[in-house]
Structures are given as C-alpha cells and as structure tokens.
C-alpha cells in the first residue's frame, strides 16, 4: 500500500512538473459536531505555475477559509450550507462564496458511491452562479473496513457550469487520489486532478495536485 501511495505522489508531481500549467493546493480541515449538526472548517492555499514561452512563473494564487454546516436528513441524504472567503493575490477584491449542497449516498458498502449537487453564488468584482454535479467513489485498499493505519482510494468526476452576465462556461474535473488513516482523528490525503476548462469555448487544461490534512473529532 505504501508503494501505491508513493506512486501517486510520484505520478502527480511528475505530471505537474512536465505539464504546461499546474497548481498545488494544500489544505487543513477540522470536522466536528455541534449538536445534531456536522461542522467542517478548513483553510487552504493555491500556488500556480504558468509557462509563457520560455518564462516560467510560480506564484501564490490565493489563501482561503471555508465553513460548512451539514445535517443528515435521512440515512442517505445530507444537506449542507457553506461559506468561502478567498484572499486573491492578484486582484484588489476578495472573493466571497455561498454554497448550498445536497449529497446522496447511492451505496454505503465497501465501495461507497456518492452524488453531490452544489449551487454556488460567487461574489468577486463580478457575480457568478455556479452549478456542480460530482460523482465520487471511495474504498479501503485493505479489507472491507477502513481501519487505522490503512490506505483508501478516492476518485471523482465533476461537471461545473458557470453563468455570468457575459455568458456561461462548462468545465470538467477528473480526480483520483489516495489517503492514509493515521488514527480515528487524523487522515492525510493526496489527490491528482485534471481540469478541462471552457469545454464549450476554447478548451484549456490544468493539472492540480492537492495535499490535505484532515482532523475529525469523535
């Protein structure tokens, strides 16, 4: 399993190293309960690397803080509301984003299948409506149950439609990753995501490597 994890890291970093445009995101999240509500607080940043002809540049794109509150309304359905604040490095205005989320678990056995619908209102200097649908699966890499000191695999595909005053765009984000459960309270995760942007106009691609440190209180 350690080899699988190491392979992911190597493939991700190599892809990022050779691709034209790439980004590295890292975040730390804390999940905790407040009464019957599940809370998720996270902080993160994105660093992007761009290459224009011979010149390469690496710069911090933003730092952000997120807050989600989730309620399980049935054994398979969870509703969430979220708020994101992004401090954009290259723009004067910061970004504020509101999120409404619905997550439906199709199957909760060894291989878990989950659909996630999101509606977002993004406020920058302009305003955008964003709608996302993500289908994801995850499963433990050893046995049927995910225990401490075990690896898991997670993969997803997300379609994103963004609508602004000047038109709309269509993106697709394909992701695969692996995580390691250090203890009941802590996990680390490594994801590789390929984003296909502006599918309905001029297609561009960008590779993302994301590292996450996730804490969960009992």
């Amino acid at each position: 399993m350690k080899r699988i994890f190491a392979s992911f890291v190597m493939v991700g970093l190599t892809t990022l190293g050779f691709s034209q445009d790439g980004a590295w995101e890292s975040n730390a999240a804390l999940n905790y309960n407040l009464g019957n509500w599940k809370m998720n607080t996270s902080m993160g940043h994105r660093t992007v690397r761009t290459q224009i002809e011979e010149s390469r540049s690496i710069q911090m794109a933003f730092t952000e803080i997120n807050q989600f509150v989730t309620r399980k309304v049935s054994p398979k359905l969870k509703l969430s509301m979220g708020y994101k604040y992004r401090n954009l490095n290259n723009e004067d205005a910061a970004e504020n984003r509101l999120t409404q989320q619905l997550a439906y678990t199709h199957q909760n056995s060894t291989v878990r299948l989950l659909s996630r619908f999101r509606a977002e209102q993004r406020f920058r200097t302009d305003f955008a409506h964003r709608y996302r649908y993500r289908f994801s699966l995850d499963f433990p890499l050893s046995g049927e149950r995910l225990d401490n000191r075990e690896f898991y695999l997670i993969s997803s595909n997300e379609v994103l439609v963004e609508s602004t005053g000047s038109g709309h765009s269509l993106d697709n984000r394909l992701s695969i990753g692996t995580g390691y459960v250090i203890s009941n309270y802590c996990k680390i995760q490594f994801d590789f995501t390929q984003r296909f942007e502006d599918l309905n106009q001029e297609l561009s691609q960008i590779s993302f490597v994301t590292t996450s440190l996730i804490f969960t209180t009992p």
Binding site: A29, N31, N40, S42, N66, F68, T70, K78, S80, G82, Q101, A103, T105, N108, R112, L114, R116, S136, D138, P140, R145, L146, I154, S156, G179, K187, Q189, S212, I214, T216
Partner: peptide, 10 residues
C-alpha cells in the same frame, strides 16, 4: 461507527 464521509463531501 460508519466510515467518515468528510473527505468525500467537501
């Protein structure tokens, strides 16, 4: 104790 879903939800 079900498998945590935080890493797949957000």
């Amino acid at each position: 104790i079900s498998r945590s879903s935080d890493f797949i939800l957000y």
